[in-house]
């Protein structure tokens, strides 16, 4: 069943040289319990897409057009107080840096208890009990003692576990996880991802996992959406996109992941850099870097078409058909 729909979202930041479009018309759907990886280079618009869903785009940025629908209900135009009730309760969020995401002057217990009392209407005692359960759930040893400790007394990985508990404790149906493991040690990353995946599976929580790391997607996600310069270039099931990427940009991304067991394989890099958001060229944004670009690519913008297990926006794909 469809949980979240983005319908032609445009996110704009006004600047003194005119508006900058960070997301230029993005549509995608997410089913309940599904884990969707949102990949792309820095500046591709993936984090802003996440912020658009939670209604937390920093002013003066705004959603210029399009709709965000949760279970069929529009949420992009809700009054601030109504949206607040959705945040945490319906849509949770996990940020990049566990070191700065926790309030340094309150114990982790207090932060968990406050969150649950706000959304679940529990009394202090019940909330405290559940807070202990949550700490145990996210794998923190001696949860009862740890509850009354301050964030700085936890290690980085432990803090990210607390962050996950905080994001999940009001039992949201959707979690936006923005680079949740980037700031962590490589050794801890896999554990945190596995934990996130297990908890979401158990609770039937859907996840949008924003990352630039294809390896993380391969391990965690069901579906993957690839963004380039504010637009979706390809979306599909993880297995298909990884094994058989359709868009030249996705292919480039795949070639840049080191493959285990294949020592001879060379890592290739995509030549060039993503174009700036200002003064976009008329054609496909990837055309200047695309090894297979044809004349049409430089003049006409490709529209996403159904292909494989999802969609792809590329003229070449149409040609091949």
């Amino acid at each position: 069943m469809t949980l979240l729909e983005l319908d032609n979202i445009v996110v704009e930041f006004p600047t003194r040289r005119g508006p900058l479009e960070a997301v230029k018309g993005l549509s995608l759907e997410l089913n309940e319990g599904q884990i969707l990886g949102l990949v792309g280079e820095s500046g591709a618009g993936k984090s802003i897409t996440g912020a658009a869903i939670t209604g937390l785009i920093e002013p003066p940025g705004l959603i210029r057009s399009g709709q965000v629908r949760l279970r069929g209900q529009r949420i992009d135009n809700l009054a601030p107080e109504k949206m607040r009730r959705i945040r945490g309760k319906e849509i949770g969020a996990i940020f990049q840096d566990p070191l700065t995401s926790l309030n340094p002057v309150y114990t982790v217990g207090e932060q968990l208890i406050d969150t649950m009392r706000v959304h679940l209407g529990l009394d202090h005692k019940a909330a405290r009990k559940r807070a202990i359960d949550w700490l145990a759930e996210v794998g923190i040893p001696a949860p009862e003692a740890r509850l009354d400790q301050y964030p700085h007394q936890f290690s980085g990985g432990m803090r990210q576990r607390v962050v996950i508990a905080l994001a999940l404790c009001a039992e949201p149906k959707l979690i936006i996880a923005d680079e949740p493991t980037t700031a962590l040690d490589v050794s801890v990353q896999a554990q945190i991802l596995a934990l996130l995946k297990r908890l979401c599976r158990e609770n039937g929580t859907a996840v949008i996992l924003v990352t630039h790391d294809m390896g993380v997607i391969a391990e965690t996600a069901d579906r993957v959406a690839v963004m380039y310069a504010g637009r979706l270039v390809e979306i599909g099931d993880v297995a298909q996109v990884i094994q058989d990427p359709l868009h030249p940009y996705t292919k480039g991304l795949m070639n840049s992941i080191p493959q285990i067991g294949n020592r001879d394989a060379r890592l290739t890099q995509i030549e060039g850099a993503m174009p700036g958001l200002r003064n976009p060229a008329p054609g496909c944004a990837f055309a200047p870097r695309c090894p297979q670009a044809i004349d049409t690519c430089r003049t006409l913008r490709p529209i996403p078409v159904d292909a494989g297990s999802g969609q792809v926006a590329c003229h070449l794909f149409g040609e091949a058909q």
Binding site: L56, R84, G88, F95, T100, N103, D114, V118
Partner: peptide, 20 residues
């Protein structure tokens, strides 16, 4: 960041401002 995260958890403004 911790205020942004608290806001993303839907904490009411009163609590965000006068407590956190």
């Amino acid at each position: 960041d911790y205020i942004k995260f608290a806001r993303a958890r839907g904490m009411p403004n009163r609590m965000l401002h006068f407590k956190y």
